[in-house]
Each structure stands twice: as C-alpha cells, then as structure tokens.
C-alpha cells in the first residue's frame, strides 16, 4: 500500500513537472534550443535588476534592435538585483553557447572574475550601463560614468535649491539610497560627496537606506524633513526611493521649500514634475541605450566591430563616437516641466 502511494505520488509530481515544461516551452521564445550560428548571433543582455522600469525600457530598445538586425536576443537578470545571482547567470550562459554577453554590473567585484573566465572560453563580453574593470570586457557602452552621474545629480540639485542658480544653493542636503550595501549607489554617493565640495554652503547631513521599499523611503524622508529643519534638498538615488521621497515632501507640504532629485524614467515621475514637487529628473535615453548595446553586440559577433575603431554606425542612432574602448551614447538628459512630455518611456 505504502509503495503504491509512493509511486502514485511520484508519477503525479513528475507529470506536473513534465507538463509545465512542455506547455510553457511553446509560449516562450526558443532562443536557447537553437544552435549559435554566424548568421543569427545569440546575445544575452543582463540588467542589474529585472522588473524595474529603467531596465524594462532598455529591453524595449534592445528588442527593437534585435528585430531589425536579426539577433537572437535574451533579456534576463536577477529580480533580486543580487550580483552573485548575476554571476551565476553569466556562467550558465557561457555554457549555453552565447556569442555575446552584455553585462550591466550591479557590483563589479564578483562579476569581473566571471566575465574574464567567460572571455577565456571565447565569448564576447561587453558592459553597458554600468562598467567593470577594463580587462574583463571588450567594450563599454556608456551613457554616463558613475562620476558623471554623481556630478549631474549634484549640479541639478544645487541648481534647483538655488532657484536656478547653483551658486545660491545654501542649506542641508540628505541622501536616500537603496540598501546601505548597494555597490552601485555607494559609487554614486562617493562622487556626490566629492562634487558637493564645489558647493561649500551645502552640507550633507544624513544618508538613509530605503531597502528598495517605497514605503520605507517615504518614512525616512519624512523623518529627515522634521529632524533637519534646514534641509533643502534630497538625493533619492534608487528607483524606489525617488517616488517615496517625492511623496513625503508633498505630504509634508514642503513643495518648493525642499527639492528632490534622482534617477528615474520620465513616465514614472511625470506626475511629480507636473505638480511641482520635483523640478528635475536626471537620466538618459534608456530605450536608445538598449538599442545601442544590441547593435554593438551584433557587430561584435559578426566581426564588423574591432578594437581600435573610432566610430560606430548604430542604425537609427547614426554615428557614435568610440573613445578607446568606450562607446558613447550621448548626453545625460535633465527632464523638467518643459521637456518631460516629449519623452514616452
């Protein structure tokens, strides 16, 4: 009796697994099962964190390029944002026979060794959005370095606090980050701190984590607004922190007195820009970033892009400059009331 029960149970379980395997394989694209060929390069695009609008809009641009160029594109990454998980995915893709792996590094430390090892197995590895040490990749598709991002955030906030003139900026500022351990954010914080020296009247008084939770971001901003009476500006430097901090300022009735800025896709912050809570949002064209990355990956796989090139023809984006091994997307965009409606991503 017991034995029969065991058999029934295991057969049922096996059936469930098998069924789920078969049924879903039809709906998803079967990129992995096709052998890599010279005509249709297999490109893997790794975001820092899957499921957030920033990277979903990048993926949109990447898919557009992939359809046009005939690239077999796979977009996947850790939904937790864990760099360790990202490293495991790179190792898996190497085994699957990827032609190109494009990495946006949430933390260069654990990723660089894995990327080097993938390169040694004949995979083209590039970085996009966020770089790793130069010897771990062939090219970096760059929208802005961490330093440029830090500077842009700092200059923008100073300008908003100073009422249009950054030199008038005076008062205390604070940062709401993701987790205190988030490597990316810590890199930006480093450059924000450095840039703040340019504005001696601005004093950084606190850095608080939001743990990637909007509610928490709203709460710490609310507390900081009360604890620091002279607080004039907040850097909200994660996709969850920005709307949370903006909401806190709005509810505290401090719109106009306290400025907040950060990185966000325009669609997500339009509401706060229009009601005046947020004067400026810093970002770049994420759709184009995904598009350019896929073009570079395709060219690399087909052998049309070699080290030492100085320009690169990127389809609808036209000629892009290559500076050493860095392919430049273009400028950082500061979205405000006047221009934000021109963008839909």
């Amino acid at each position: 009796m017991v034995r029969i029960g065991h058999w029934i149970g295991s057969v049922a379980l096996a059936a469930v697994i098998a069924l789920s395997g078969c049924s879903k394989s039809e709906s998803t694209h079967e990129s992995a099962s096709q052998p890599a060929s010279a005509i249709k390069p297999t490109v893997y695009l790794l975001p820092k964190k899957k499921g957030v609008p920033y990277f979903e809009t990048c993926a949109k641009g990447a898919r557009e390029a992939a359809d046009k160029l005939g690239v077999d594109l796979t977009y996947d990454g850790p939904t937790s944002g864990s760099a360790d998980e990202a490293a495991k995915m790179i190792e898996q893709w190497t085994l699957q026979g990827a032609d190109v792996i494009a990495v946006s590094a949430s933390d260069p430390a654990p990723l660089a060794p894995v990327m080097k090892s993938a390169r040694s197995k004949g995979v083209h590895v590039i970085t996009w959005d966020s770089d790793t040490p130069a010897d771990s990749r062939e090219f970096f598709v760059c929208q802005a370095s961490a330093e440029q991002i830090g500077n842009a955030l700092c200059d923008t906030l100073a300008k908003d606090i100073g009422g249009g003139n950054a030199d008038n900026a005076d008062g205390e500022v604070a940062i709401v980050t993701a987790q205190m351990t988030a490597a990316n954010q810590n890199e930006w914080i480093k450059y924000i701190k450095a840039r703040l020296e340019k504005y001696p009247k601005l004093k950084l008084v606190d850095i608080q984590p939001s743990n990637d939770d909007q509610t928490k971001a709203q709460q710490v901003t609310q507390d900081m607004l009360k604890a620091h009476a002279n607080l004039k500006g907040v850097f909200a430097i994660s996709s969850q922190a920005f709307p949370g901090a903006a909401e806190a300022i709005k509810q505290a009735g401090k719109v106009g007195q306290v400025q907040v800025t950060g990185l966000s896709t325009p669609n997500d912050m339009k509401k706060y820009v229009h009601d005046g809570t947020v004067k400026s949002v810093v970002l770049w064209n994420t759709v184009d970033l995904g598009y350019l990355t896929t073009c570079v990956a395709d060219a690399l796989a087909k052998g049309t892009l070699k080290k030492g090139a100085t320009t690169f023809n990127a389809g609808r984006l036209g000629e892009k400059k290559i500076d050493g091994d860095v392919i430049l997307l273009g400028d950082i965009i500061v979205f405000n009331k006047d221009n934000i409606d021109q963008f839909d991503f």
Binding site: V52, D213, T215, Q218, S239
Partner: peptide, 14 residues
C-alpha cells in the same frame, strides 16, 4: 492604508 501614489514591485521586502 498605503501612503503611496505609485506601485513598484519592491514593496514589502522583509
């Protein structure tokens, strides 16, 4: 009773 106007997938972690 959420205080928020926007919804993102990171809510409620921990």
């Amino acid at each position: 009773v959420t205080q928020l106007a926007t919804v993102t997938s990171g809510l409620g972690q921990g």
